[in-house]
């Protein structure tokens, strides 16, 4: 059993129309994989009365219609679906082109100085890692990713910026992320991808990333960024 995972899932009422199923109390890939597998099983069964489920780092939030089901009935349906042990990772693998520094990543130099590195070392470390999407939240399509190398862990800005651009490749504390719409944020901007993380015109595929997905980055220059952005289409590649 992994650190941070509970021996038994906790079914917690969240008002008259929702419950939270906690599988652990920490940010941990094993716990999160179990949450995502639990979510997959719940969705596959299409349990009557469940309106939607929201997988988070360590719990599954379940919105239900109390006119169609109840707390005890749902717990009875859900309990057998909680994965007992570790489950294999199932996410898609993505490669996102990123233009680092300059106007694309205005905090690259700050992060380098704060961590005692050169900007190129920061970029090399960021490129060398593989990131895992733990959950989507904060803003539509904003992916909270783990896997940031410890050498790049940098506390968030004391004063958040009021607006950072969409598709910014950013880091905050121990986490990495890609923004999907312009948002206020205290995260540090290392670069930007020409891939549109969120586009309503894509319909059910409006959001590129889903929890469990694995993400790597590849470096591009400003000219390539401009060419890719102008070309449109699917810029992020799914690999492997």
């Amino acid at each position: 059993m992994t650190a941070g995972a509970y021996d038994e899932p906790r079914f917690l009422p969240a008002g008259d129309a929702a419950l939270t199923v906690e599988l652990g109390d920490s940010v941990d890939p094993v716990v999160n994989r179990r949450v995502l597998e639990f979510d997959r099983r719940v969705r596959e069964l299409d349990i009557p009365g469940i309106v939607e489920s929201v997988p988070t780092y360590r719990s599954l939030f379940v919105q239900y219609d109390p006119g169609r089901t109840g707390f005890a009935a749902l717990v009875d349906r859900l309990r057998p679906l909680v994965p007992a042990g570790d489950v294999p990772a199932t996410g898609r693998r993505w490669v996102f082109p990123v233009c680092y520094g300059g106007e694309f990543g205005v905090d690259l130099d700050f992060v380098a100085e704060a961590r005692g590195l050169s900007p190129d070392q920061v970029i090399a470390l960021h490129l060398a890692a593989e990131y895992r999407v733990y959950m989507i939240g904060f803003a539509p399509g904003f992916a909270y990713m783990g896997g940031l190398p410890p050498a790049l862990h940098t506390p968030r800005r004391a004063s958040p910026r009021l607006r950072i651009p969409a598709n910014s490749v950013a880091i905050g504390g121990i986490q990495a992320g890609i923004t999907s719409i312009p948002v206020p944020s205290g995260w540090h901007l290392l670069g930007r991808t020409p891939a549109e993380m969120f586009d309503l015109a894509r319909g059910d595929d409006a959001f590129l990333l889903a929890p469990g997905d694995l993400v790597r980055f590849e470096r591009i220059d400003a000219d390539t960024f401009a060419r890719l952005e102008a070309g449109g289409g699917t810029i992020a590649r799914q690999a492997g």
Binding site: G15, E22, F61, Y144
Partner: peptide, 9 residues
Amino acid sequence: VSDGIALGS
């Protein structure tokens, strides 16, 4: 650790 939020929470 961040988790889901219900209406009226």
